[in-house]
Nucleic acid binder design. Structure first.
Lengths: 415, 415
DNA sequence: TTTATTTTTTCGGAGCTCGAAAAATATAGC
DNA sequence: GCTATATTTTTCGAGCTCCGAAAAAATAAA
């Protein structure tokens, strides 16, 4: 139900704008598409597609590829000409700051990675200015001599604001409210979006496997902390003020274990890998916050698998927290496909039965049995792919859709 | 971020369709509007509005009202002519089935109630067929001799499916999966939508007070059970399969109190009025399910206000459950304006401090202090208004927006 | 080489919006 | 009462964009 916020009469140019975006989106999704196929997919007429394609080609946004052998073997009749996005049409910079690591990449308009860099840095120890300098330096470094670029996407473990401009809070740095968006925009004169890593994971899943991850699904990152990306109605769900979806900080047990965020009883305080380790060692009151990235958890997991004991109990309680949390979430939005991502999924064999047992005790219980989890151990490639798609879709819709011409992306005129 | 589900090229007729809807929506929102004002609000040109208004008037959807004294006292120049929706253009039937009561109303296209009926019935005791017959009878009864109508909205305390067709489960009847939508559609040959009562409350708040209840807010019904309606991005939020938003059945305490739904630890099992009463009397294991509609709760509340004791404790625990629940919810969607509705709000003086204390311990704690609750003791008028608006907006957009002509709504030709 | 088949482009027609000018309708001043 | 001024609404021609049908293009099959 639309509810009467006005402004927004459709004019003539809007129509073209929208249809151009539709065509670009269809080609991005499929990779290669003939005019006839585009007409079929969009419902627009052949003649309209012909006109729009001619424009896009003359603007250097799309390319005609030699005889597309798209449809099986050669058939009678004039062969279809495949259209693709012109890789040279635009470039974007993708940044990903995670615990002690800063990744950067340049992608072309087709999504291919042109160049990438990686550097380690002590994220928690760094001062505010040092942190900003490191990020700025990474962009300067990777773009040096690489020509113009049209977008920066800054992926971040933490809470960003809803306008995708500022980092509000993050577990991996010691500072809050850092306006990376404005800083980067001022420095590089390019639109920047600051995005929560889990939201980008969801974006990536949607592009990798649209059958499973269509208009509604859930991606849960099981890592040092617990994160979530949520797709609802075909859109990444963000909160009203922040990037939202702080699944890890829903309350599992009022007044329960101490969480990294300073509060008590959050899901993360049971299911984050630091919490599992803490629970396995002594009792569960105070958080040591040792950085348990990788190895330690592996040995703990081996112990847990070997026999009953505190280690296995710790993983079980983690599974319970996740299960009840999903149950509460599903009370609001119903079960949907769920993906579990990150190194915490190594313990999936122990977690899953506990998750299902807990879920069965919640309002989602009836349909929980239908629910299939998919596991992706490594989140980094997903975040990188999500960043690239996020940047490029933004170019598709905001720049090439409207048909503006942008500095530094001078299109070749393909007579 | 739009994500590439195709189909949906904009054609020429779509443009008109969309702009017609926009005009109708503007007039519905404002009640009375001159062509000039519509042009200003929609951003469309005067000439376009003139053309669209002429169409709508000739189709009998809008009316020219005598010299609208909309703008203060008379000014120089040709006076504005106010346009209003023609009350005769359409009618809709609104039904509301709640505990032991079935309300029906006919509203005209301006939203005015033409006729209304009320009947009591023993909802829990009624057989499946008796229940269906009662609903059918109510529609037949109220529409008898009243001419054609274009929509039925069936408001319901309970879970409906996402297509707004079926009642999946309800606490007030003994049967589940009743396809009221199809049954009514077959019987009356009119589109029917079956809606959760809390979603309609949210719709009503949005129309009554768009400043406060704009694109994002939350309505929580504190009654025998606990319900929720959620507006996100200007749309009523529904789950993927069901009407969704079952706030009352998020888990407050794993393995906690028995809930009316058969599970344990739901928020409702602490905050529903049956739960409060149960908690005040003995211990909290089994639910008596006495129908505590009204009076009993009043005396309990008096006891609670008078002195410390089990009664006050029961209300306090209810507040805690609500507070932690809101905290979890706000972890996902951030604080937004909240309205509390229903007879449970009579205890607001006791509940509020507990809600705020609990909230402060959750991720929403930082901004919880900014949060203002608004209290509406009586839900029925809101549900009725919400039903009417829901039905009429559907006519606006699906029938009159496209400009089709519908049986039984023969427009007068206003030369 | 001719015919059949399929894709793509071209062209005329129709619908919608827009801006500017004209028409309509009131008040204000003399 | 008449004219000037102000404001709203309608009218009219121009400009986009889309569509359908026909033409053109490009290939396989006969």
């Amino acid at each position: 139900m639309t509810t009467g916020i006005l402004k927004g009469g459709i004019r003539h140019d809007e129509m073209r704008r929208s249809n151009r975006s539709l065509v670009i989106g269809a080609v991005r999704r499929a990779g290669k598409l003939s005019r006839t196929e585009i007409a079929g997919l969009t419902g627009l007429s052949q003649s309209t597609i012909s006109a729009i394609a001619a424009d896009l080609i003359s603007e250097g946004i799309m390319l005609e590829t030699e005889h597309a052998s798209s449809t099986a073997t050669t058939r009678r009749g004039r062969p279809q000409v495949a259209l693709t996005l012109n890789p040279e049409a635009a470039r974007a910079v993708c940044l990903y700051l995670s615990y002690n690591q800063l990744l950067a990449a340049i992608v072309d308009y087709s999504g291919a990675t042109i160049r990438s860099t990686s550097q380690t840095l002590d994220t928690l120890a760094l001062g505010r200015e040092e942190l900003i300098d490191a990020v700025m330096g990474a962009v300067r470094n990777i773009t040096d001599g690489q020509g113009q670029f049209m977008r920066i996407v800054f992926a971040f473990q933490g809470v960003t604001d809803a306008r995708a401009n500022e980092v509000l809070w993050s577990p991996i740095v010691s500072h809050s409210n850092i306006p990376f968006g404005s800083l980067l925009e001022d420095a590089f004169s390019v639109p920047v979006s600051v995005q929560n890593d889990c939201n980008l994971i969801a974006t990536a899943l949607h592009w990798k496997n649209p059958e499973r991850y269509g208009k509604n699904f859930l991606a849960v990152l099981l890592s040092h902390g617990i994160g979530m990306g949520l797709m609802l109605n075909g859109r990444i769900f963000t909160g009203i003020r922040s990037s939202g979806g702080e699944f890890g900080h829903m309350i599992h047990k009022p007044d329960g274990s101490l969480c990294r965020c300073g509060r008590r009883g959050c899901i993360e305080a049971y299911a984050g890998s630091y919490a599992i380790q803490r629970r396995a060692q002594d009792e569960n009151l105070h958080a040591p916050l040792a950085d348990t990235h990788g190895a330690d958890l592996q040995s703990l997991l081996a112990t847990a698998r070997a026999s009953e004991g505190p280690a296995r109990l710790a993983f079980r309680e983690a599974g319970q927290a996740i299960g009840f949390g999903l149950g509460s979430l599903f009370s609001l939005i119903d079960p949907a496909p769920v993906a579990l991502i990150g190194h915490g999924t190594a313990a999936f064999d122990i977690l899953e039965p506990e998750i299902r047992t807990a879920l069965a005790q919640t309002a989602a219980g009836d349909i929980a049995s239908e629910l299939a989890f998919e596991v992706w151990p490594d989140e980094v490639p997903l975040i990188q792919e999500g960043s690239a798609m996020s940047a490029l879709i933004s170019v598709d819709q905001d720049v090439f859709g409207p048909g503006l011409r942008i500095l530094g992306a001078e299109p070749e005129v393909v007579a």
